[in-house]
Design a protein around this nucleic acid. Structure first.
Lengths: 329, 329
DNA sequence: CAAATATGTGCAACCGGTTGTTCTATATCA
DNA sequence: TGATATAGAACAACCGGTTGCACATATTTG
């Protein structure tokens, strides 16, 4: 049988209240009693029931992490890292993380968790345009935060400086003498795509150049056009393929290899995220590193502080790191 | 303000008990009253508090999903699919899924969730040898199930027939005239590695042949030896590289490409899982498909039934599917 | 038509914590 | 020394559900 405050109180000849206070440290309690109780609970390895505590405190000590239900998730080590960041930081606050699969095809799981009050707050791990998830959260009164700038008034978010990073990447390449680049991007329904695209263009402008709009290819994640797009880019004189993420870069590298095109000899290649998906690639790939783990932790931090009464809204993490490697030599 | 059974009862001139029964459908209740209550709660969009219900029922309606804290996870779309399977099936039982990061470097999160009673059962998504996670679970009295045969008496698991599948893969290749193969495997501390290795050997035996032990390379996930291992294999006359998973296969393909070795002309290649990590590969890769989603769902199913008093132990899903593609032509 | 049974509802205890208030014994002060 | 403050502990209500039991009314049965 499991221990409870009552059983412990009885055992020690104290009241439930006193035991509770000895454990929490709140309220007036003699040092002697406190020690006695704490020694005892350590001995019997007692831990208070989270459920009972939740009922009393009106807090579940759970946050929901909304994760895209579609396959994109599995392709993206980034989400994993983000999740790790969230979970690690959650531990610090004695919180646990509930996984909620949801996207624009269905938010039943989110509805369930929110309306049954199984979570105190929500983190949305990817931001889509006109997202059902966000629309739902806007109307509910649960605190939430979105990963990635939703470009929407009143929606709190945390993001890397995607635009700034992309811009810097381009400038760095230009400084290295590369001026003609093709951009291989992901879904137009994802906001990070737009931020990086803006950065791509800005990078050229900052150097007094202009991006070649005919070499910008979006929605390439599941595209069968990859092969032709790459050939076209090369034919048009692209010196470098800039990929918006490592999954895309992996596909590109594979495609190039298969066509007998060498990196970096025939064409240079770079990516974003610098995940371990490409860590064993030959050649090594130039990539821009974002600290996704930190970002995940930041989400949690903000939510916790807001639950404690603060009202932090959005935050942008400006640090990133360009890892120059063989693929752009 | 949020609604409660009490507030609803007052509003409708009924008792808390009656409202509760009208909602749950348990106990004696007139059709009329039931309808009245249910219409009303639909109108005000009431959902019972999961926490309060948990306290009364002594059930959290949460399962924990233990996921490796190390980066291996992010590399493996398989885990994602598994997780999706778990979450989807959980919905059917009105359960939610708590993510627990843990591995042999630390099980603090698991301890926390279990001893604070935040979960009713645990799914361990990867099975390592001499796992701290499993040792902990064996000593606690929470129901649990492990994905992947732990090869350990008394530990309940769910698994694909990894040995049978690997064996069949080899036999299929042999039938296609390929008899000399190298095996690129993952960590020796992971049990699936051993199951597939056994299947690898068995496949040859079933065809009256013998696996070339000198062409078996394990622990290749983060190995810097990939390049030399592949060259050695080819030099030794290997006609096909059998990879134990898609991550490895991706690395191998990349490595081969980079060395100017063509697939399947110079060497053939195949893999396991058939995840979308390789779905855009050139050439298309022969792979053995396991239904990870189904397996995840199965875990949940078994745990739920055991919570309801059954005592199902282990289960092996025997279905798999070999997708022959260009890489073994 | 009384007795037995069935039906619908409510009371109150319970799940295991937290917390405002009260009570008692001791310490501090004028 | 009596009034007042304070420390330590306990009482009891509360969080929002579930459920065994009692009770009143309606229905069936001999």
């Amino acid at each position: 049988m499991s221990h409870t405050l009552d059983s412990i109180a009885k055992e020690l000849g104290l009241s439930k209240t006193t035991v509770s206070r000895a454990i929490s440290g709140k309220g007036r309690i003699s040092e002697e009693t406190r020690k006695k109780v704490n020694d005892y609970i350590k001995e019997i390895n007692y831990r208070p029931s989270a459920v009972a505590r939740s009922l009393a405190a009106n807090r579940t000590y759970n946050v929901g992490l909304v994760v895209p239900a579609d396959s994109a998730l599995g392709e993206m080590p980034y989400f994993q890292t983000l999740m790790t960041g969230v979970c690690d930081r959650a531990m610090d606050f004695e919180y646990d993380v509930l996984i909620i699969l949801a996207d624009n095809d269905g938010i039943a799981a989110l509805r369930h968790a929110v309306s049954n009050k199984k979570i105190d707050a929500v983190i949305v791990s990817r931001c889509e345009r006109d997202s059902k998830v966000i629309n739902f959260l806007k109307e509910s009164d649960i605190p939430y935060i979105v990963v990635g700038n939703p470009m929407e008034e009143g929606v709190p978010y945390v993001d890397h400086d995607n635009e700034g990073a992309a811009s810097r990447m381009i400038e760095t390449l230009i400084d290295a003498g590369i001026t003609r680049m093709a951009l291989i991007g992901g879904g137009e329904n994802i906001n990070v795509t737009h931020s990086r695209l803006a950065g791509f263009r800005k990078g050229f402008l900052n150097k007094g150049l202009k991006a070649d709009e005919s070499l910008i290819f979006l929605n390439m994640h599941k595209s069968a056009r990859m092969d032709s797009v790459l050939k076209e880019s090369i034919a048009e004189g692209a010196e470098c393929i800039v990929c918006m993420d490592d999954m895309l870069c992996n596909s590109v590298l594979n495609c190039l290899h298969n066509d007998g095109i060498s990196v970096p000899e025939d064409i240079k290649l770079c990516s974003f995220y610098d995940s371990n998906l490409l860590s064993t690639s030959k050649p090594s790939i130039t990539s821009l590193y974002f600290d996704a783990k930190k970002l995940g932790g930041q989400c949690l931090e903000i939510l916790m502080r807001n639950l404690d009464g603060e009202s932090i809204t959005s935050q942008t993490l400006t640090d990133f790191n360009i890892q120059m490697r063989d693929s752009t030599l």
